Amino acid sequence: MTRVVLVHGIAQQLKGPETITEAWLPSLNDGLVFSGSDTLPRQDVSVAFYGDLFRRPGHRGLGEPPLDASDVEPGLEHELLLAWWQAAADAEAPVPGPDTPARLRTPHVVQRALNALSHSAFFAGLAEGAMIGSARQVRRYFTEPEVRRAAGERLTRAVTGETTVIIAHSLGSVVAYETLCAHPHWQDLTLITLGSPLAVRGLVFNRLRPAPTGDTARWPVPVKRWINLADRGDAVALIKELAPSFGTRVHDLTVNNGAHAHDVRPYLTARETGLVLAEALG
């Protein structure tokens, strides 16, 4: 009996639905405990997993060819990296911003962005290729129709007649929003978005389907309640409040995730998330 469906975000291509469940469910239950509620059994939760759509096929060489600044494609990939750079610099004093004078050895703006992001809490410890790969997954979702369609189909298959809550993180909130809009016959669902980039103009908002009308996006018909949670230091959730773009029915909440602002686990353990989930589950 699937009461809660989880939709993951970027950089999950080497995992699977069981791995995601194993990582998410304890944090989800911690949030419920902190809110004074009962925990969820494993059978009540399923994952709409689409990360494998971004997994590279095997080949005869050793390892994967590393990505570097020269591999960043113009347009969305380039713009995303620069936007993350600016957001990380705004939130974290140690991260040099785009206005910081460049050293001669790193004059390329993308390379400067990658160097700066490597000092941020969100991207700390990630190789340049992983950062580029994260931006590439967002670009591929919006520009490759087969990827977009397949991701939505994964969520469609996960939702059952017993489903009451969809919890979506990062890029997963885009998958959830578009899939909910495409299924107006679904009813009485609560949508919980975590670290969502949905309201980021130019990069995400204007690329949504159905297309927004002016400054306002369509409300997903099956959703009776939408709660959006964001950490102020989350570089992916560049716009923290969704209500101005999706309607005043969205309830925006701020949480504190500590040093790992975009990590899904502190989002799930937050008492605010537990309270919302417990109310939705009755």
Rank of each mutant, 00 (worst) to 15 (best):
L104P: 00
T106H: 10
P107V: 13
P107A: 14
V110F: 07
Q111C: 04
R112T: 01
R112S: 06
N115Y: 01
A116K: 02
L117V: 00
S118W: 01
S118L: 01
H119E: 13
F122H: 09
F122W: 13
A124E: 15
E128P: 13
E128F: 15
I132M: 05
G133C: 08
G133D: 08
S134R: 03
S134L: 12
S134K: 05
A135Q: 06
A135F: 10
R136Q: 13
R136M: 12
V138E: 02
Y141L: 10
T143H: 08
P145V: 14
E146S: 12
V147Q: 05
V147A: 08
V147M: 10
R148S: 09
R149I: 10
R149M: 12
G152L: 07
G152C: 09
T156Q: 14
R157C: 14
R157S: 15
V159G: 01
T160L: 11
T160K: 04
I166R: 00
I166Y: 00
I166T: 00
S170E: 07
S170Y: 10
G172K: 00
G172S: 03
V174P: 05
V175D: 05
A176Y: 00
Y177W: 13
E178M: 07
E178C: 08
L180K: 00
L180R: 01
L180W: 04
H183Q: 02
W186G: 01
Q187R: 06
Q187P: 06
Q187L: 09
L189A: 05
L194C: 04
G195H: 01
